[in-house]
């Protein structure tokens, strides 16, 4: 769209979604005359992007109604220009509208800390319970060999702001998630020093990594709901 480049992908079971936004201001040159939606095989896209050098200038071009997208890579000295054309695919599902939500609790913490917590807990159990109270945020799991709990208290007094753990809480929250998805999300750790985790009871969690000043990558994961609670819930 004219405001930027957005990307959405969902896992096969439809419980996890990634939304990436790169705002138009972040590009050296950006032009979009009309909103266009393209289906891309991400494995193939990764193969193409791997052919770019680390310092190359990348240009992505597509025509309206075309069934291909072009990736152009220029070396910094422009003595080498590569032109890759990737076939697009038809995807049945369109962009999923993600409604705005008020979150009961928002936790901002170092992304490396969060990645370490998810990695450590996944060696003990399959699911993580994330609980936010005024005391802090607690990550808990249990498995065949035992249980594990990691509590992060709020600390804003550290020297570097990106090393702080900041918790905004309107209401205590406790949610259960599959750890294997959380570990996949933490592959985005190199993108940002901090991660923001937004939680509301019985709603999907949002794990957000900012991309410098130009956008973000957000992961949405549906919570696991106790089977018993299901019966008492009113039908939608």
């Amino acid at each position: 769209s004219s405001t930027g480049f957005s990307l959405q992908a969902m896992d096969s079971s439809h419980v996890a979604l990634v939304a990436l936004l790169l705002r138009s201001e972040g590009f050296e040159h950006y032009r979009c005359d009309r909103n266009i939606s393209m289906g891309m095989n991400l494995n193939n896209m990764a193969k193409m992007l791997k052919c770019a050098g680390n310092d190359d200038i990348i240009t992505i071009k597509a025509d309206d109604g075309s069934d291909t997208v072009t990736f152009m890579f220029e070396s910094p000295t422009q003595d080498k220009i590569s032109d890759f054309e990737m076939k697009l695919m038809d995807i049945d599902s369109e962009h999923l509208g993600i409604p705005e939500a008020e979150y009961h609790a928002i936790v901002k913490m170092p992304s490396s800390e969060f990645a370490r917590i998810c990695k450590d807990l996944s060696s003990i159990g399959d699911t993580v319970v994330i609980s936010v109270t005024k005391e802090g945020v607690k990550f808990s799991t249990k498995g065949d060999i035992g249980t594990a709990n990691i509590v992060c208290r709020q600390n804003t007094s550290v020297d570097k702001p990106e090393e702080a753990t900041v918790i905004e809480m309107n209401e205590p929250v406790s949610l259960t998630f599959a750890l294997r998805y959380m570990n996949s999300f933490t592959k985005a750790t190199p993108l940002s020093n901090t991660v923001t985790i937004s939680l509301s009871n019985e709603l999907p969690v949002v794990v957000e990594y900012k991309i410098a000043e130009m956008g973000y990558v957000r992961f949405y994961l549906a919570p696991k709901i106790e089977e018993d609670e299901e019966d008492t819930k009113p039908q939608v």
Binding site: P99, D126, G143, A178, P223, K224, E226, E227, V236
Partner: peptide, 21 residues
């Protein structure tokens, strides 16, 4: 497999998004 003993169910995201909308 603990998955079979999983007392939790997970609904697809579209369920939650439609709730929010």
């Amino acid at each position: 497999n603990s998955q079979n003993e999983d007392p939790f169910v997970t609904k697809p995201l579209s369920y939650f998004f439609s709730l929010l909308s």
